[in-house]
Computed example of a mutant assay.
Amino acid sequence: MWRDLIERLYDDAEFADPASDAGIDQIERRLGQPAPEELRRLLRETDGVRADYGSCLVWSVQEIIEQNTEFRESADFAQLYMSFDQLMFIGDNGGGDRFAYVRVPAGRPDDLFVWDHETDERLWAARSLQDYLERRAVADGDDWYRKAL
Rank of each mutant, 00 (worst) to 15 (best):
I27T: 08
E28T: 15
E28W: 05
R30W: 04
R30L: 00
R30V: 08
L31F: 00
G32E: 03
G32K: 12
Q33G: 05
A35V: 15
A35Y: 02
E38T: 10
L39R: 09
R40H: 06
R40L: 02
L43K: 12
L43D: 05
L43T: 08
T46V: 02
D47L: 07
V49H: 03
V49T: 04
R50C: 02
R50A: 04
D52R: 15
D52P: 00
G54L: 06
S55K: 13
C56V: 06
C56R: 14
C56Y: 14
L57H: 03
W59F: 10
W59T: 01
W59M: 07
W59S: 12
I64Q: 07
I64E: 02
I64G: 01
I65Q: 01
E66W: 09
Q67V: 14
N68Y: 02
T69D: 13
E70K: 13
E70S: 10
E70A: 11
F71C: 04
R72A: 01
R72I: 01
E73P: 01
S74I: 12
A75G: 06
D76G: 14
F77L: 15
F77E: 03
F77M: 13
A78K: 15
L80F: 11
Y81K: 08
S83C: 06
F84I: 05
M88Y: 07
M88Q: 15
M88W: 07
D92E: 15
N93F: 09
G94P: 14
G94S: 13
G94R: 13
G94L: 14
G95M: 12
G95V: 13
G96L: 13
D97P: 09
R98H: 11
F99W: 09
F99G: 01
A100G: 05
A100V: 02
Y101D: 03
R103L: 02
R103A: 09
V104G: 02
P105W: 06
A106W: 00
G107R: 09
P109Y: 03
P109Q: 10
